[in-house]
């Protein structure tokens, strides 16, 4: 990896033209919308049904709810994280490096900053879709009847933007697709296991609880799980602020490193 130059650190320069790039990605997605949506629905549903009923039948209530309801909240956060992460790693990388779509766009009156923003917002949009899909499953399975669950829709977008920005940092420094496995092994998988997707964080030893508490997925779940139970989350501003902080910092670092990579 090359060391960023001074000019790579300048403030973001973005314009509304980023929407044209978002729209381009949307147009590609629309061509395969039906299988994509089915994937959004089927994957978490299998998790929730398999683990929720299979494992859940062995368990007493978890934190006062059925295990499947507990798991459903974790799945919202986990799936929104994954949607944005996959989009901002593999799909963005193929547009940047393999198809050279970004090069074509850079010859038009758009800046690299516009493109990186568009990729982040697009990946966030994918999370919005998966979050909404799981919410529908939650309603259909009757796991929650609270109107508070509607908050899951904007939260999915926020969580998506956060993880998209973080993944775009990896995209900026990756030599190839294989490189992304490090990110899954070192970041995504530990976060999934530590942050309370499958079991309450309180079950972890104190030291690991501290680690979990600083990870973004923990704060996503801290927002979603009470909502599924029909309760207003405790200190929502803190959790939102942590997600925004990860997202904003990730976006800036991604921008600096992508400029270093492409504007040589």
């Amino acid at each position: 990896m090359n060391i960023p130059r001074r000019k790579d650190f300048r403030a973001p320069r973005i314009s509304w033209r980023f929407l044209h790039v978002w729209r381009r990605n949307f147009l590609v997605w629309r061509k395969l919308a039906v299988p994509a949506m089915l994937g959004n629905l089927a994957d978490p549903m299998l998790y929730m049904l398999g683990l929720g009923f299979g494992l859940g039948s062995l368990l007493p209530q978890v934190n006062g709810t059925s295990y499947i309801t507990f798991l459903a909240a974790g799945t919202v956060a986990y799936s929104t994280m994954n949607s944005a992460t996959f989009e901002a790693l593999y799909s963005a990388f193929s547009r940047m490096q393999i198809q050279r779509t970004w090069d074509a766009i850079l010859n038009a009156p758009l800046n690299l900053d516009d493109i990186v923003l568009a990729e982040a917002v697009w990946a966030g949009s994918k999370s919005f879709l998966s979050g909404t899909a799981i919410l529908i499953i939650i309603w259909v399975l009757g796991l929650s009847h609270s109107l508070l669950t509607l908050w899951i829709i904007p939260i999915s977008l926020l969580v998506g933007l956060t993880f998209a920005a973080m993944a775009l940092v990896m995209n900026a420094i990756s030599p190839n697709y294989d490189f992304f496995l490090y990110y899954f092994t070192l970041v995504v998988t530990p976060m999934t296991l530590l942050c309370g997707v499958f079991f309450p964080v309180e079950q972890l030893p104190a030291a690991l609880r501290v680690v979990a508490g600083v990870l973004p997925l923990f704060h996503a779940i801290a927002l979603v799980r009470p909502l599924v139970s029909g309760v207003v989350p405790a200190s929502p501003a803190l959790h939102v602020a942590v997600l925004i902080a990860y997202g904003a910092f990730g976006f800036y670092v991604a921008l600096v490193l992508t400029r270093r990579r492409l504007l040589v």
Binding site: L27, V28, K31, Q99, R100, A104
Partner: peptide
């Protein structure tokens, strides 16, 4: 451009 970068999905 020197190397074609047309959008293969379109």
């Amino acid at each position: 451009p020197q190397i074609d970068n047309l959008d293969p999905d379109f």
